[in-house]
């Protein structure tokens, strides 16, 4: 931007110099055309994010150290860090992380897989669509947490009810995303497949599914985030171990340091999941322009 401005200024000077001996009528001054194409375009500035983080945390630490922020309001960042150190040294971190990761992996794998299968069926078969879309629309807004006591009766207080809760929570957004993605597959590609007399199965496998992939991936992002949110809910009942249980326990003890440590672990989990998903997406959707 600065470059362009500089350039046009230079051009102007040059022109003025060249035209110096040409007669100019009075009052006809040369001006540069004003640049008005700026803004409305974001570009990534890599350092701003970290700096904002550091400043926020520094202010927070200063505030809690001086008592400007009372210890009832927020814990000291350094104490939260200390809690992390303790979690790490005592091995409690993995004691909580491993059950949670297992629940998250099993539950969301079941939910997402079932969601994709049902979503594709809805996308392909009018009868399935007519039958299941209202059902899915009815399940979607139910707060799954409310069903937890029921799941305990159905699947037991052990891992079953936790898997079921996470699975159901990830299932519905996945269904909706998938059939939307199938609907959005370029019809001309399907028509092309038909025009070459490809079999129905080939069209589904080679055209519909790959074409729905981008939509399925964005559905996955949403579903997995919901899966992480539901981890806390799933560990409400009958879990002594797990990040969700850890957070709930910290909350019920009003232990802010542990509460924050747990929440940070969850958001880190979210970042990692998103990152891994991004890597897979880059590979699988390499064809996207």
């Amino acid at each position: 931007m600065a470059d362009t401005t500089h350039h046009s200024l230079g051009a102007q000077t040059e022109r003025t110099a060249a035209g110096a001996d040409k007669p100019h009528s009075a009052g006809e001054a040369n001006t540069t055309v004003r640049y008005r194409g700026g803004g409305f375009r974001t570009h990534s500035i890599f350092w701003v994010g970290p700096v904002v983080f550091v400043v926020l945390i520094a202010v927070w630490e200063w505030g809690t150290q001086t008592g400007f922020i009372s210890n009832l309001t927020l814990p000291k960042p350094s104490d939260v860090l200390g809690t992390f150190g303790e979690l790490w040294r005592t091995g409690t971190l993995f004691e909580h992380l491993i059950p949670s990761l297992t629940r998250f992996a099993v539950g969301s794998a079941m939910g997402c897989l079932a969601g994709v299968i049902i979503g594709v069926m809805i996308g392909l078969f009018s009868h399935v669509r007519a039958g299941l879309v209202p059902v899915v629309a009815a399940i979607f807004p139910i707060p799954k947490i409310a069903l937890l006591p029921l799941f305990i009766i159905w699947f037991g207080i052990g891992e079953g009810s936790k898997y079921a809760l996470i699975a159901l929570g990830t299932f519905t957004p996945m269904v909706v995303a998938t059939y939307g993605a199938v609907d959005n597959v370029d019809r001309t590609l399907i028509r092309m497949g038909q025009s070459f007399s490809l079999s129905w199965a080939s069209i589904v496998r080679k055209i519909v599914l790959p074409g729905a992939m981008p939509g399925i991936f964005s559905g996955l992002r949403v579903s997995l985030a919901i899966g992480i949110i539901l981890l806390v809910a799933a560990e409400m009942l009958g879990a002594r171990r797990g990040i969700g249980a850890y957070i709930l326990e910290a909350g019920s003890l009003y232990d802010l340091e542990r509460l924050f440590a747990g929440v940070i672990i969850l958001s880190a989990l979210g970042v990692v999941v998103n990152f891994v998903l991004g890597l897979i997406e880059d590979r699988v959707l390499r064809w996207r322009s």
């Binding site: 006591p149 305990i152 009766i153 037991g156 207080i157 409400m236 009942l237 009958g238 879990a239 002594r240 249980a245 709930l248 326990e249």
Partner: peptide, 21 residues
């Protein structure tokens, strides 16, 4: 004994009735 956190008294009663705890 192994402690089983169930958040609410209602949940506990449900779990006892269904022999979950």
């Amino acid at each position: 004994v192994e402690f089983q956190p169930l958040q609410g008294v209602g949940n506990i009663i449900g779990a006892l009735r269904s022999d979950q705890v």
